[in-house]
Design a protein around this nucleic acid. Structure first.
Lengths: 96, 96
DNA sequence: AAATTAGGTTTATAATATAAACCGGTTTAT
DNA sequence: ATAAACCGGTTTATATTATAAACCTAATTT
């Protein structure tokens, strides 16, 4: 009847982060912060969870002298996202 | 960019309850319990929240000698649900 | 009449989200 | 050249939330 809603994705901020990363080759921390409007601490925590789950990969580097961390969604992350969207549709009345 | 996800609806069980109630004239407790597979305590708590918010109405009565409580979604509940679905679409890549 | 079941509600606990406080380094102003 | 402010984060404390266990009252079954 109702499909299981992956709790890792069923979170406003984590879903927002995944939504950004699925539509873009890669994104850095600042980009994510600006797009989501969330606080840095919150983003940091949620990104860690997505990373632990293997949904995104994290690459720490530099832009000039400053640190810059970029994030990319993984295959596993894409799969999980798609599955989540599919599960959601069992709750909404979206056709298909 | 991303729309606000009403936290009252962004909950697996409450969303399931609302999803049931939006597609049916009314439903009783047992029906909701069976359809969602959730425990009675959890359902009771979540229904109370939806009721407090004015999203559903509760009618306690009897079926023969046994108690039977039925639930109906309100206009306000329908509106909130639709708005929630719309907000969700800003996160997913559902066309329209 | 004791035990079980039904339909819930209340309460305790575990999990979660979120912001505040912090940290190492860099840039800017004095 | 030193202090102050800023940048990109991380850690940690707190508040909120979800969830199941325990419970209650009445009805049914044994």
């Amino acid at each position: 009847m109702f499909k299981y809603l992956n709790p890792l994705l069923h979170s406003e901020l984590r879903l927002g982060i995944m939504s950004i990363l699925i539509s873009v080759e890669e994104a850095d921390f600042v980009f994510i912060r600006e797009r989501t409007g969330a606080t840095a601490g919150n983003i940091s925590v949620q990104i860690e969870k997505l990373s632990e789950a293997g949904y995104i990969e994290v690459e720490k580097g530099f832009a000039g002298k400053r640190t810059r961390t970029v994030y990319r969604i993984t295959e596993k992350g894409v799969g999980a996202f798609e599955e989540y969207v599919d599960a959601l549709k069992s709750y909404l009345n979206i056709n298909q």
